[in-house]
Design a binder for these strands. Structure first.
Lengths: 244, 244
DNA sequence: CATGGTATGCGAGCACTGTTCACAATGTCA
DNA sequence: TGACATTGTGAACAGTGCTCGCATACCATG
């Protein structure tokens, strides 16, 4: 919707050269995506129905193929959006953590969880069972959001390390080439042992969120799973040296 | 399945009292489940096709309804199997860990991961996006495998605690009623603070396995993700006091 | 053994899905 | 205005889960 107005706003300017048709087309794209997003939010990605969104926006099913080359392409678009939405949510939450590395981490994780609980079907669209037939385009737009989120977490980790707040583990094994390369890319001085620790930390709270989204803590915590998450955050951050 | 036993129970008593019909019926059940399992292993649960398994075993689609009351019931049966299969796998792997609590934990987690990587589609059948329309029967058979696995892990944790090998966290918060009740049920002396720690530990390696099954570590580790998992196991066990 | 009831299987059909294709209407531009 | 590209449609095809009525096999009982 806002996209529509943005397009119309831009149409007045010189460089954009939007014809009437292009504006209509952009609006239709938005309409399709809005309807599809609503359907996914309600019933989940695997039961997204092309004919359903066609019905919703008052278009024939065949007409949708002028915009998306089938169901998978529409899904890819929505997965991309979900990734980016989650990424920006986490990023801005981290900024709200202020100058404390502990708080930046904690706020990022809380935002991750909140987003997952608010949009469980979109969360599972990203981290649940892959839609059959859907294949993530290699180095495509869906991995972009993934990269952004990883970058955000690694950035905070690197800064915490620079400040000497991160305890470097005395690892029993030598780092892999990938770990060394990545660490060097983030900060040439950063010890590669921190890479698996950061990934493991992500896996830790990601596992908590996943299981909670799937309702696996319901039997024990009911609607009070937040106390589990909060205590785990503290334990997890203490594990890498970031005391409260 | 339960229907068969009910019939046998009603018709006579001792289990060997099988008529020709009942034997055929049991065999057909097995054939259906085998075909369905093969299909799920290959293409995933959400694209399990009733007509497909009917074709596979040379039966009409309608005939299947004499055995399963629709697709969801067939899926429920396979989910139950997957749960129990994973549970027994983990249980027996733990036993292979011998007397060391560290090793029992580690072997259990490794078995969890191995099973997930060997049967990714069955793993996602349990821990991925729930099949639309499928609802876990309340206190039904699917939660049984879940309970078994939780029990196995909690048992090892409790034993480690009894031996004084588990570091009890100085938690900042008071335990919830559920945590206290569960701890008391496991061992009346066990500190309730250990409950969230055990659950968080499960979430930690579950997150690692989930992300690996979904291929999220591929870009960094390729086919060598095991080094990440192994170092995380050690870090995770050290976190609860179980040194190597 | 014969018979009646039951368990099992099948074909046809319904409502739905994603997708393709020929065709008509509409917007854009020389 | 005429030529062309863009957009939308209805019909159709193959696939799905599922229901129903009908036929056949089985099995316990008279």
């Amino acid at each position: 919707m806002s996209m529509v107005f943005a397009k119309m706003f831009l149409s007045g300017q010189t460089g954009d050269m939007t014809t009437r048709r292009e504006r209509l087309r952009a609006a239709t794209y938005e309409e399709i995506k809005t309807a599809a997003l609503a359907q996914i939010t309600a019933v989940g990605g695997s039961s997204l129905s092309l004919r359903g969104v066609a019905r919703e926006i008052g278009m024939s099913p065949a007409g949708l193929y002028r915009y998306y080359d089938g169901r998978d392409e529409l899904l890819t678009d929505l997965i991309t959006d979900a990734y980016n939405d989650l990424a920006t949510t986490v990023e801005s939450a981290m900024d709200a953590g202020g100058d404390s590395m502990h708080d930046r981490f904690a706020e990022g994780m809380r935002a991750y969880r909140r987003w997952g609980l608010e949009f469980p079907n979109r969360f599972l669209l990203i981290f649940g069972t892959p839609i059959p037939g859907y294949e993530a385009p290699e180095a495509g737009s869906t991995v972009e959001g993934n990269r952004r989120m990883g970058e955000a977490f690694f950035a905070v980790g690197a800064e915490a390390w620079r400040r000497g707040q991160l305890s470097v583990p005395t690892s029993a094994r030598t780092a892999t080439k990938g770990e060394r390369d990545l660490a060097f890319e983030i900060d040439p001085q950063m010890p590669p042992q921190l890479v698996p620790v950061m990934l493991g930390t992500w896996a830790h709270f990601h596992g908590l969120v996943t299981l909670e989204v799937l309702g696996q803590f319901q039997w024990l915590y009911g609607d009070r799973s937040d106390v589990l998450f909060e205590s785990e955050i503290e334990r997890l951050l203490a594990g890498i040296g970031l005391m409260i």
